[in-house]
Design a protein around this nucleic acid. Structure first.
Length: 509
RNA sequence: GAGCCGGUAGCUCAGUUGGCAGAGCAACGGACUUUUAAUCCGUAGGUCCUGGGUUCGAUUCCCAGCCGGCUCACCA
C-alpha cells in the first residue's frame, strides 16, 4: 500500500482500480474532487412534486441534483444510477446520445460511493419510476474505498428475504460511524429524530420562560449525583479538576442568584461501567424552576415527554423492542417504599439489614457485605420493581437517606418529595422539591461525607460554596434531570445507548 | 471485573471429524439505449484476529492475549 497500511489484497486491488480511474479522469481533464456544485433540487421533495404535477408535466421540474451514487445499472448506451441525498434516493438515467460520447464515457470511471451531480429534468420511465433524464453529469468526489451497500433479495426457493452485504458488524458500525451512516439511511434518521427531540425540548422550555445556561464541565468538586468522576489536572493552576457528573449544584446557584427558571442540556461524565444503558459521557437535561415543587415538575415532565414524542415522530402509542408503551397522561404513580414493601414482603425502612440482604441475594445480587440500607434498597428496587415498570410510571416516596438533595415530604418524615420516571424498565428522569434549608442540607451532605470517608467513592462531598449559596437563600425550587439518550432510545425504539450516541465510547482498537 | 458466544474475501456468511479455503453481493474484463436483486459470458480476490504450544502437517485442537456482542457485577 502506498500509505503503508496493511490491508487485504482485495481491498488493495479495489482501491488501486479506483486510483487508476482517478488518473484516467485527470488525464481527461476531469477534476475528481470538486469545489462546489449548484444544487437546485432534492431527491424526495422533487419526486413528490413530480407526482403532484400530474402526467406530462414532469419536464417542468428541471435543475441540478447531487448525492452519493449508491447503485449503477449499465446497459451499454444507457445507464441507470441511484442517487442518494439526505432526503432519499432518486434514479438518474444517462443516455449516450443525450450526453455525448465524451461525457457518457465517464460512467465506467464511476464507482458506487462516488458523489455526483446530475443536471436534467424529471420524467417517468416505462417501469413507472420517477427519474432524472440527465443532460449533464459532474463528478463531485471520487470514493477510493468500497462502501458495503446492502441489497435485499428474495431467495428463489424459499421466498425469504436475503440480505447481501450491508454493515451489520456492530463494532464496525460504532467505530466507523461514517460507514454505518453512509449505507444505512435509517440510522441517519435516528440521529435526525434525536436532534428534533432536543430542539423540541428547547422550544418547550424556552416557551415556559426558561433560560438556557452553560455551567462548568471542569469542576473543583463534583456533586449533584452519586457517581465516580473522571479526574484531570490543570497545569497552570496545578490542581485536580473533575469532569462534572451532574449540573445540579451550579444550576441551583443560579436560582439563588434570581434566575428563576434555568436549564442546561449538556454532557455529563461518569467513570462507571459501560453497557447498553450506560455510556461514560451522556447527555442530560436539567431544569430548575423557582417557586415550584416536585408536583409541578411531574406535570412538566409529562408535557415534555409528549413534546419529545411528537418531535420524534411517534404519538402517545409507541413500540419499544416489541412492547407497547402508552404515553397518555397522567402517568401512573407508585410509591418507592410501598412498591418495594409489596415486592419483598417486608418494610424497607424497618426490616433488619440482614433480611434485606437475603432478599437481594435471593434475587441474584452479590457482593452485598458492605452495603448499607440505602444501597440495599436501591438494589432491591432495581431487581424487584423496576423491570416491571414498562409503562411510564412516576415512582415517589424515596427514603431521605437515598436523596440528600431533596426536601423531606410534607407530613411524611423519613421520605422525600422526589420522583423518578421509569418507562420500558429504565429510569428516564429524576426530580425533587429541592432542599433549600441550608442547615438540613449541611447535615445531609455531612452524612454523605462520612460515607465517603468510609470509602464510598460515589458519595457526595461537602461543597462549602454551595452551602454558602443556600445560606443566601434558595427559594422553593423544583428541579428535574432527564436522560436524553435514554429518552431517545425509547422514542426511536433503539436497543442500545450506543445506537443513539453518534460516536459511543469504545475500547481502543 | 466474571461467565457465555463470536472474529474466515471489501461486506454478509458457510466450511474444514487436523491434509491445496467456499457462496452471494461488491470488484475486474466483455456484450447490452427504459433498468431497478438488471441480465448474460468470463476473471481475479484470503495474515481463516494475534502470539505461543501439540502435531509429519493447525484456519481447525490446547494455552495466552487483543477486539466485539450478550448476561452478570459495578452504575441513578
Amino acid at each position: 500500500m502506498p500509505d503503508g497500511i496493511s490491508e487485504g489484497e482485495m481491498l488493495s486491488r479495489i482501491r488501486q482500480a479506483r486510483l487508476d480511474k482517478l488518473e484516467e479522469l485527470r488525464a481527461r481533464g476531469v477534476e475528481p474532487f470538486a469545489y462546489s456544485y449548484g444544487v437546485t433540487h432534492l431527491a424526495t421533495p422533487s419526486a413528490a412534486e413530480f407526482e403532484a404535477l400530474g402526467e406530462g408535466r414532469g419536464g417542468e421540474i428541471a435543475g441540478r441534483w447531487a448525492g452519493r451514487m449508491v447503485a449503477l445499472r449499465s446497459h451499454g448506451g444507457s445507464s441507470f444510477a441511484d442517487l442518494e441525498d439526505h432526503t432519499g434516493r432518486l434514479q438518474a438515467h444517462f443516455r449516450r446520445n443525450v450526453l455525448g460520447e465524451e461525457l457518457y464515457s465517464l460512467i465506467p470511471l464511476l464507482d458506487l460511493g462516488d458523489w455526483i451531480g446530475v443536471e436534467g429534468a424529471l420524467f417517468r420511465t416505462r417501469a413507472g419510476e420517477v427519474t432524472i433524464g440527465a443532460t449533464d453529469l459532474a463528478l463531485l468526489c471520487k470514493s477510493l474505498r468500497p462502501l458495503p451497500f446492502g441489497k435485499v433479495a428474495q431467495d428463489a426457493e424459499s421466498g425469504a428475504a436475503v440480505t447481501h452485504s450491508g454493515l451489520s458488524d456492530r463494532e464496525a458500525r460504532y467505530r466507523q460511524r461514517y460507514t454505518d451512516l453512509a449505507v444505512h439511511p435509517e440510522r441517519r434518521e435516528v440521529f435526525r429524530a434525536r436532534a428534533s427531540v432536543v430542539s423540541a425540548i428547547r422550544a418547550f422550555l424556552d416557551g415556559l420562560g426558561y433560560l438556557e445556561v452553560e455551567t462548568p464541565v471542569l469542576q473543583p468538586l463534583y456533586g449533584g449525583a452519586t457517581a465516580r468522576p473522571f479526574q484531570t489536572h490543570h497545569h497552570a493552576l496545578d490542581r485536580t479538576l473533575y469532569l462534572r457528573i451532574a449540573d445540579e449544584l451550579y444550576l441551583k446557584r443560579l436560582i439563588v442568584g434570581g434566575m428563576h427558571r434555568v436549564y442546561e442540556i449538556a454532557k455529563d461524565f461518569r467513570n462507571e461501567g459501560i453497557d447498553r444503558y450506560h455510556n461514560p459521557e451522556f447527555t442530560m437535561l436539567e431544569c430548575y424552576q423557582a417557586f415550584a415543587d416536585y408536583e409541578t415538575m411531574m406535570g412538566l415532565v409529562e408535557q415534555l415527554v409528549l413534546e419529545a414524542a411528537t418531535a420524534a415522530g411517534c404519538g402517545e402509542e409507541l413500540s419499544y423492542q416489541g412492547s407497547r408503551i402508552h404515553l397518555a397522561t397522567p402517568f401512573q404513580r407508585i410509591s418507592f417504599v410501598g412498591s418495594l414493601a409489596e415486592a419483598i414482603g417486608a418494610d424497607p425502612i424497618t426490616a433488619p439489614l440482614s433480611d434485606l440482604r437475603a432478599s437481594a441475594e435471593a434475587l441474584g445480587a452479590r457482593d452485598l457485605a458492605a452495603a448499607d440500607r440505602g444501597k440495599l434498597l436501591d438494589k432491591l428496587f432495581g431487581l424487584a420493581v423496576q423491570p416491571a415498570l414498562l409503562q411510564p410510571t412516576f415512582v415517589v416516596n424515596y427514603p431521605a437517606f437515598l436523596s440528600p438533595l431533596a426536601k423531606e415530604k410534607r407530613g411524611a418524615p423519613g421520605v422525600t418529595e422526589r420522583f423518578e420516571l421509569f418507562a420500558a424498565g429504565q429510569e428516564i428522569a429524576n426530580a425533587f422539591s429541592e432542599q433549600n434549608d441550608p442547615i438540613a442540607q449541611r447535615t445531609a451532605l455531612e452524612e454523605q461525607a462520612a460515607l465517603r470517608a468510609a470509602g464510598d467513592l460515589e458519595a457526595h462531598a461537602v461543597d462549602e460554596d454551595y452551602l454558602m449559596a443556600l445560606e443566601y437563600g434558595l427559594p422553593p425550587t423544583g428541579g428535574v434531570g432527564i436522560g436524553i439518550d435514554r429518552l431517545v432510545m425509547l422514542l426511536t425504539d433503539q436497543p442500545s445507548i450506543r445506537d443513539v450516541i453518534i460516536f459511543p465510547t469504545l475500547r481502543s482498537p
